[in-house]
Design a protein around this nucleic acid. Structure first.
Lengths: 338, 338
DNA sequence: TTGTAAGCGTTATCAG
DNA sequence: CTGATAACGCTTACAA
């Protein structure tokens, strides 16, 4: 005989609704009854079936983490990995499980959204800000599927957790300026991602504040890896070469840029170098790479907290939570080795 | 009115069981009926609710990926990340979704197994070989929950996908020998993990085959990071110092060892250095680190293929699938710079 | 405070 | 080939 709520009810001589109420901590249950039921539950090690509960309560207990990249571009970097694990842990503290939602191909999100919107696979979503699909995002709203974005999406009102990208880029640029670099180039990741444009804004702010030249030549938006390499090379070997680079994305993107620099024979900090996304291995890169560090643990917690509130139909305090990022300074940007 | 199978049945003037049969490609449905139903389905964009289907069919459509480490120790490394994303993609090709199962604390797997065994949260599991919990693993068997292990577990018969760890370590050691290193030390990761003992075996094999000294002093099993650092330092600065190190684990573990080496003032390839787990950033480490590279994409696919067969009640061809690992040689182990 | 009964949206069985 | 009808195991009104 399989262990179901009926069996528990039979053993405890109560109805299954009583068992259900006990298990879900409903009020208005006699103390003795409650204990009697709990005793049986303990003895039998009964645990309610998660699917049946989901069907009945219309809550799956699953949260989807939607990383809108193709896996080659994202997970291979170390940025998402911290989030994946931290979010999983944070969610489980609220009895939610993490379902990983990745598109087969870059940006192909239809299948995922059908799963969410039509088939009810999750109760809510945490979505990477690289998801630019306004259509689907508004469908989520229309269908009352709670979601939080990791990273703000500009033209859309939504709950989000992010760092102050402008500030971070500004600080990073100022650090390079302090070190004596004067022609600082910006190597921007895909510019349709909001954080890249915010970072570009911060860079520009620092440049103009310090009365340095802000020129089109020093601004390199990402197109593809092939062109990236060529342009990085030309930007630091040209007639009026850049003497430092700020790279607005980490992981493989940063490594590509680093490769290109090395190819020219120059090497940070000869050419100053600061990147985003801090990892332990940057300590061991040749030379160690300065990078903007995001408080991923706090951000994970913040996003889960917001989502959980939404799921409870509570109103989170803030619509947008921002953290300050820190700059982790290493040799790649230290012109003046003090 | 919510869109359910009943609604489709009503619109198509058939019973819901007919709709169900059409949707699940059952044989014995009149062609016209089938088309009529499919037409309505298409028009309404109906998709069956995943939870209701799960309850009725007793199949959740979810596969759990159990990484038995605390997140700090694992996901932060880059080893699992490739697996996580590849497995997700492979699974979705079979209409399964990936549920990430991580313990709050190192090795605390009870909660996870209760979720799996008692509450039916997944149909099957892919489990990291670091899971040594025989009790729970045999419970899985008793409960007919299909699972595949990523990495073989020695004292337990199960389906597994792994590399030939002994061979890989042997090759890596022989590479060091060819380079002229003679006192090669083994820095083993946690020895209760089978792959570490297999790698130690391969190391030993190479050492003895080439008539080098195999001594207790050159064998450093992992205890904790503090001791690891101390012992690495003493092993390469002692009276009869090691001239090369083979490290049986990658990620942070490898970086710890590298830190310790550098502390002594020595630096690979002065002290030869080969690690496990190949990542792109190893190209940029100072010096670039030679590492054993696992075919993670193929391994992910293999493990999913096995699991899917098991879920279909088919017998996979092999109980244990092994891949050969490759050695990615970089400067850290090139004594003779040709 | 407890129990009855009606769902939840599917799939599965079996009769027609 | 099609359709009632009964599961699946739980939650939740509502009645007692």
């Amino acid at each position: 005989m399989k262990l179901t709520i009926n069996e528990i009810a039979r053993l405890a001589n109560v109805s299954k609704s009583t068992v259900s109420k006990v298990l879900n901590n409903y009020p208005g249950i006699n103390k003795n009854t409650r204990e009697k039921v709990l005793k049986i539950v303990k003895e039998t090690q009964y645990e309610p079936n998660i699917i049946a509960r989901a069907l009945s309560s219309k809550k799956t207990g699953n949260i989807g983490l939607l990383i809108p990249h193709s896996p080659e571009h994202t997970i291979s970097g170390a940025y998402w990995t911290t989030f994946i694990s931290r979010i999983t842990i944070e969610l489980s503290a609220h009895d939610y499980n993490l379902l990983l939602l990745l598109p087969h191909e870059e940006g192909k999100l239809e299948d995922i959204f059908r799963l969410v919107l039509k088939r009810g696979i999750v109760d809510g979503l945490i979505i990477g800000s690289e998801c630019l699909d306004r259509h689907w995002l508004s469908e989520l709203k229309n269908n009352n599927i709670p979601f939080v974005m990791l990273g703000k999406n500009p033209d859309f009102t939504h709950y989000s957790v992010d760092i102050d990208n402008e500030d971070a880029a500004c600080k990073a640029t100022e650090h390079l300026i302090e070190q004596g670099y004067r022609r600082i180039a910006l190597i921007a990741g895909p510019i349709n991602f909001y954080y890249n444009s915010e970072r570009a804004k911060g860079y520009r702010k620092a440049i103009t504040t310090h009365s340095l030249e802000y020129s089109r030549e020093l601004y390199l938006p990402y197109d593809n890896y092939q062109r990236l390499r060529e342009e990085v090379e030309s930007i630091i070997t040209g007639a009026a070469p850049a003497d430092a680079l700020l790279v607005t994305a980490g992981g493989d993107f940063m490594l590509e840029v680093l490769d290109s620099i090395k190819k020219t024979g120059r090497k940070p900090p000869q050419t100053g170098f600061v990147s985003f996304d801090d990892y332990r291995y940057l300590d061991h890169i040749n030379p160690p790479v300065s990078a903007v560090s995001q408080p991923m643990v706090e951000m994970s917690k913040a996003s889960v907290d917001i989502l959980v509130k939404l799921l409870k139909k509570q109103e989170p305090e803030e619509k947008e939570v921002f953290f300050k990022a820190k700059l982790n300074i290493r040799k790649s940007s230290l012109k003046n080795r003090n």
